[in-house]
Computed example of a mutant assay.
Amino acid sequence: MRWYRMTKKMTIKEIAELSGVGKSTVSRFFNNGYVSESVREKIEKIITENNYEPNVFARGIKAKNNRFIGIIVPCLDSIITSVILMRLDSKLREFGYIPLIINTNHTVDLEISNLENLSRLNVEGIVVIATEITKEHKNFVKRSKIPVLFIGQICKETYSIVNDEENAGKLMGEYIAKLGYKNVLYVGVNETDELVGVIRKKSVIDKLLDYKINVESITSDFTLEKTEQLLYKYLKNKKPSCIICATDNMAFGAIKALNSLGINVPEEVSVAGFGGYKISDLIVPSLTTIRFFNSLTGELAAESIIKLLNKEELPKIQKIGFEFLERKSIKK
């Protein structure tokens, strides 16, 4: 059966009247239900005369195997999210699937709402680039028959792709400790984000403590602006020898605060981050950081959701590797 969209607006009632059939018959036609061959020919004649064109979305969204994959993202302006999303999008298209991308602006309620919306749209699978996992996320997964894959957070009720936060954090902590820093500040994020807010932070700090390093930690958010404001106030009273930030973006905020106070980086205070953005190598001084393989995350996510659709075996948790980028923001 072919599917169409109108180049001029027509209602089902108008199509039915022109075809000489009932509205319910036209509705069955568009939803791939049974209609006789003679009636089908009448309806197709009308839609041809009125310049319908193929429309895969109108056709497919209610079909059982519609080739749509829902993708929920927390934002569209994140460097990491965009890298993952672009690779995920292109790989799904290579497999013949159509991504439906929804942005939530870091709003958890909107994320849950869109999970429900995608379920009602009957997408074949859902990929969520998550900032946290709530009870509502878990409840959705438990009752939904749609395969769901999380990126960036672990949901024990389904499948997840995450960064190897533990080993990355240990490597950063050990690197700073072996350089002889004795007074380190760690700037983290809210612990509702289990991977970055808890595991990344704990791995860094535990390794520093193994070397008897004095460590203090404060909590910001993922933004440059909030981190800059927070550290501007903090640094007026205290001066650590090194600041480790949970993300590169936050490290940029730390460097701005230090510059505003006339504190030289790295001569007086060293700074490190996590992320490995391209711009991290362009700023002065270039930022010492850990880069996760985000493009690989997007590709692996596409392959994994397809495997779930095909009912193939898949590890519950897949971890993405990283590389350490030693640059100029750390004084040796």
Rank of each mutant, 00 (worst) to 15 (best):
residue 22 G to K: 01
residue 31 N to G: 03
residue 28 R to F: 00
residue 299 E to I: 10
residue 96 G to E: 12
residue 110 L to T: 15
residue 234 Y to F: 07
residue 220 S to F: 05
residue 123 V to H: 12
residue 153 Q to V: 10
residue 290 I to K: 05
residue 219 T to I: 15
residue 34 Y to Q: 04
residue 189 V to R: 01
residue 133 I to N: 10
residue 48 T to I: 03
residue 221 D to Q: 10
residue 68 F to Y: 10
residue 119 S to H: 11
residue 1 M to R: 13
residue 198 V to K: 10
residue 265 V to G: 12
residue 186 Y to L: 02
residue 165 E to D: 12
residue 309 L to R: 15
residue 126 I to D: 09
residue 245 C to Q: 06
residue 23 K to I: 06
residue 22 G to M: 00
residue 280 S to N: 08
residue 142 K to L: 14
residue 307 K to C: 02
residue 157 E to Q: 11
residue 240 P to R: 06
residue 210 D to P: 03
residue 28 R to A: 02
residue 108 V to L: 15
residue 275 G to W: 00
residue 139 N to L: 15
residue 30 F to P: 00
residue 206 D to R: 05
residue 164 D to F: 06
residue 212 K to T: 05
residue 202 K to Y: 06
residue 146 I to K: 14
residue 117 N to E: 12
residue 285 P to Y: 04
residue 113 S to Q: 15
residue 67 R to P: 02
residue 1 M to Q: 09
residue 324 F to E: 03
residue 147 P to H: 10
residue 40 R to Y: 00
residue 190 N to H: 02
residue 17 E to L: 05
residue 14 E to T: 09
residue 110 L to Y: 15
residue 253 G to H: 07
residue 12 I to T: 09
residue 299 E to D: 07
residue 277 Y to A: 11
residue 46 I to E: 02
residue 283 I to W: 00
residue 85 L to C: 05
residue 100 L to G: 01
residue 102 I to C: 14
residue 172 M to W: 00
residue 42 K to Q: 11
residue 286 S to L: 00
residue 306 I to H: 09
residue 298 G to F: 05
residue 127 V to R: 12
residue 289 T to K: 04
residue 295 S to G: 12
residue 304 S to L: 13
residue 200 R to D: 06
residue 166 E to S: 13
residue 23 K to L: 01
residue 142 K to W: 03
residue 199 I to E: 05
residue 35 V to E: 04
residue 60 G to L: 11
residue 257 A to N: 01
residue 206 D to Q: 07
residue 169 G to D: 12
residue 117 N to K: 14
residue 125 G to I: 15
residue 284 V to E: 14
residue 228 E to R: 13
residue 310 N to M: 15
residue 302 A to Y: 07
residue 39 V to D: 05
residue 228 E to G: 03
residue 129 I to Y: 04
residue 130 A to R: 13
residue 51 N to Q: 07
residue 61 I to T: 10
residue 85 L to D: 04
residue 42 K to S: 05
residue 10 M to D: 09
residue 138 K to E: 15
residue 85 L to T: 11
residue 215 V to R: 07
residue 144 S to G: 11
residue 107 T to P: 00
residue 179 L to Y: 04
residue 204 V to S: 04
residue 232 Y to R: 07
residue 315 P to Y: 05
residue 135 K to Q: 15
residue 328 K to N: 14
residue 63 A to N: 15
residue 58 A to L: 14
residue 127 V to D: 10
residue 290 I to W: 00
residue 160 S to E: 03
residue 127 V to G: 10
residue 159 Y to Q: 08
residue 51 N to S: 08
